[in-house]
Design a protein around this nucleic acid. Structure first.
Length: 323
DNA sequence: ATCCAGGCTCCTG
DNA sequence: CAGGAGCATGGA
């Protein structure tokens, strides 16, 4: 094994801190796709014709932060001996570009300062998250399915279903004898057997939603690019016409799958509970209360939502027992 | 046991 | 249009 696969270095805008993202990825021991190893993030995705496993890790200094991206595995491997340094590796360039987008390295966290001034309670949380980004999921489709899975049930159970789904319908790529899973292709999920999904503990509803949405995506009937550019409210209207997609799911997909920066899934019970506690209500906040508070967080309501979610996993602490 | 989790659809009055 | 049942499972 030669440890000299090519790597690429990205330069986030300062301030940047990768730890909140890594902690978010690592919050469930059942998470099958986002693997945190030694402070790095490993993830397998399809880039063009190839399956690629990469690792992203933060480095540099507070003033000049950096993120390095390196490839750990590519399948099928490049035809000839790997190109000499000059040619560079196309998969590496694609992976680095993707990490930059998913980790929102070009975002300027400084403009959160005004929001912190307007709302000191959120401000205290943002201070703990200095330099944090709210990461995107690698594909809107994956995000959509994840949102469907998360409907109504506990996050822990949603992870269980996700893992089962990925290991049943996903492909994998091997590195050092261990498989790294890719999220299943839409075409594969579209043809999944409902009985099989039922075995994976999907309700009949969820099975129907996932299969029919996967079929739409496989047929390229959802224009993600257009949805990403559209005003949020318009995009929500489009998405909620799809069976299985209510307002909460649409909002989740907009913020975590498409990069809309000013969306608040105010019906989210996790959000309601975090906010109820932080603002001393002695109960969960109601949806209207969350929407009203969130007026102060314009135009970065998505980041605020991520911050509150992060606060939920942070308060549970790192209570995962060692393997 | 009962209630509720990162909701949504469908049915009723 | 508001309100409620049903869905699957598991932890409090």
């Amino acid at each position: 094994m030669v440890a000299s696969l090519p790597s690429s270095t990205l330069t986030p805008r300062a301030p940047f801190d990768a730890r909140p993202i890594l902690r978010y990825y690592g919050r469930s021991p059942l998470e099958p796709l986002d693997i945190v190893v030694d402070g790095g993030w490993r993830r397998a995705v399809r880039l063009g014709e190839q399956k690629v496993l990469f690792e992203a890790a933060a480095g540099g200094t507070a003033d000049e932060p950096s993120v390095s991206v390196r490839l750990l595995a590519v399948e099928p491997p490049p035809p000839t001996p790997p190109p000499c340094a000059g040619e560079g590796s196309k998969p590496l360039a694609l992976a680095a570009d993707a990490v930059s987008r998913w980790w929102r390295l070009d975002q300027d966290p400084a403009d959160l300062g005004e929001i912190a001034d307007r709302d000191p309670i959120l401000g205290a949380l943002l201070a703990r998250l200095h330099g944090a980004r709210s990461p995107l999921m690698p594909s809107p489709f994956e995000c959509l399915v994840w949102a469907i899975l998360g409907q109504q049930i506990t996050v822990a159970f949603a992870y269980k279903m996700k893992r089962a789904l990925v290991e049943r319908y996903g492909e994998s790529i091997t590195h050092e004898g261990r498989p790294y899973w890719l999220f299943p292709e839409a075409a594969r999920l579209a043809e999944a057997d409902p009985l099989e999904l039922r075995e994976l503990q999907f309700s009949r509803q969820k099975s129907d939603y996932v299969r029919s949405l996967a079929a739409l995506v496989a047929e390229d009937r959802i224009d993600w690019g257009e949805l990403a550019e559209m005003p949020s409210e318009a995009a929500i209207k489009v998405l909620t016409r799809l069976r299985g997609v209510g307002r909460w799911t649409a909002e989740y997909v907009l913020m975590r799958g498409l990069g809309h920066q000013d969306v608040i899934p105010a019906a989210d019970v996790g959000l309601q509970s975090a906010i109820g506690r932080a603002y001393g209500l002695g109960r969960k906040a109601t949806e209207p209360e969350v929407r009203a508070l969130a007026e102060q967080w314009v135009p970065r309501r998505s980041h605020a939502a991520f911050a509150w979610w992060w606060s939920l996993s942070a308060e549970r602490g790192l209570s995962v027992p060692p393997p």
